[in-house]
Amino acid sequence: MNRYWSVLFLLVPIGGVATFIVAPYFNMGLPRDVSEHGHVIDSLFMFILYLSGAVFVVTQLVLFYFSWKYEQGSNDQPVKYSHGSHVLEIVWTIIPAITMLFIAIYQMEAWATAKMQPPDIRPLVEVTGRQFNWDFRYPGPDGELYTADDFVRTDGKLYLPVDEEVLLKITSADVLHSFFLPNLRLKQDIVPGMDQSIWFKATEKGGYDIVCAELCGWGHYKMKGRVFFLSADEYEAKLEEMRLDENTMRVVQDDTLDTDE
């Protein structure tokens, strides 16, 4: 019977939903979230997943059902000679419209907190992306960034205090890069010549990947860094240790010949 062709289309919702159900059991869900704001993004993701999952399942099942039921040989009714229905058109415009507006409004706040309301604190570290490395500029003993006693680490390891709101300056030395912390649900493209910063609060100690998420040349794949979140004391100690380390580069007086006002 010809109608069995439609079974192919039944596989889509079954396989589609199964994949998302099974994936977490293989440790393939969203990566661990160690930030304060991350759960907002995660829950929004899950919310859209459930919502679109529902739309997905319903539409795919309807598709299957129609293609099963109305196969020529199996449908002994005459074809419904219908050119459409205004009522239906309106219904299926309004319902998605409301849904979409709801999502749109629902997420605005999360977006505003993530990108529009930087905390009123001093930047802690300056992150510089360059082909193909992350450099970090830490404040010296005076605790203030952009002073003469700053120092720079080029080993791609970033140390930050845990449980504390931090503000980082991000800059690029050459092309576009993107500062991506998967475990903190954080991503920001870095545009040379722009004054950009990011802010977050980590909630768990440990080391996490810093990924470059914007194509920046042949070495894009290896532009890897690590961020370590330390308790306050450990952080202070680490700062001191790094400052005294012989591999650390010093920032001499800010480019003295610069005639910028």
Partner: peptide
């Protein structure tokens, strides 16, 4: 978000086309 609406209309109309046909 709004651009999903016309796409929704199209999708549902395709389903409506299958409905009651002789596929």
């Amino acid at each position: 978000m709004m651009i999903a609406l016309p796409s929704a209309i199209k999708t549902f109309n395709w389903l409506g086309t299958l409905w009651g046909g002789h596929i």
